[in-house]
């Protein structure tokens, strides 16, 4: 399943482990620790986020994200506890953050005329950068999430977060 090849300057490449041949995969996002990969893939014809443990190739469940497709622009925190992405309800697009440890889905409120396009979650989950379309311009707006999310830090300096490999 995994094809290996040597690339320029000793870089080593492989196809995403456990990926389904023939199924389109877009917008990859790695967790900070490199253990998890989120992609957007087609599910019943709808762009849907998929989360995979790279070591085992196993798909991880995302029960809070079974709806509100199309999904786009996934982004993961360091250990993958938090998965941020853009969803859609009716004609409106929303930025949401799924806490895989608690199962909560946090919505990011935006003033009416801004449309979220892409996002990036900081490795520790304490900030979010959101690209919005605002009156014909692309802008990036930064949000402080320190009152909303617990930090999701690397093992060496982690204080409050436990591993979320199989949660929930």
């Amino acid at each position: 399943m995994v094809s290996l090849a040597i690339t320029a300057c000793s870089a080593r490449s492989e196809r995403s482990a456990g990926s389904s041949p023939g199924r389109s995969q877009q917008e990859p996002a790695l967790s900070g620790d490199g253990r998890l990969l989120a992609v957007i893939t087609e599910k019943l014809g709808r762009p849907t986020v998929q989360l995979r443990d790279l070591a085992s190739g196993r798909l991880l469940p995302l029960p809070q994200l079974n709806r509100h497709q199309p999904h786009s622009s996934p982004s993961l925190s360091w250990n993958g506890r938090f998965l941020a992405l853009i969803t859609q309800r009716g004609q409106r697009r929303f930025a949401v953050i799924n806490d895989r440890l608690t199962g909560r889905l946090h919505h990011l409120p935006l003033p009416g005329h801004r449309v979220p396009i892409r996002l990036s979650l900081a490795p520790d989950g304490r900030q979010l950068a959101l690209q919005v379309a605002d009156r014909g311009q692309w802008r990036i707006e930064l949000f402080d999430l320190s009152r909303v999310l617990e930090p999701d830090r690397a093992a060496a300096d982690r204080q409050t977060t436990s591993r979320t490999e199989s949660a929930p």
């Binding site: 870089a11 080593r12 492989e14 196809r15 995403s16 995969q25 877009q26 790695l30 690397a154």
Partner: peptide, 25 residues
């Protein structure tokens, strides 16, 4: 997408009209 260490990279690639994701160490 780079991981936190910058030593693992995931890239979306178009091949034969299909989108795939490669991992590069």
């Amino acid at each position: 997408s780079l991981d936190g260490s910058g030593r693992l990279l995931a890239v979306q690639v178009s091949r034969d009209g299909r989108w795939q994701v490669d991992l590069i160490r």
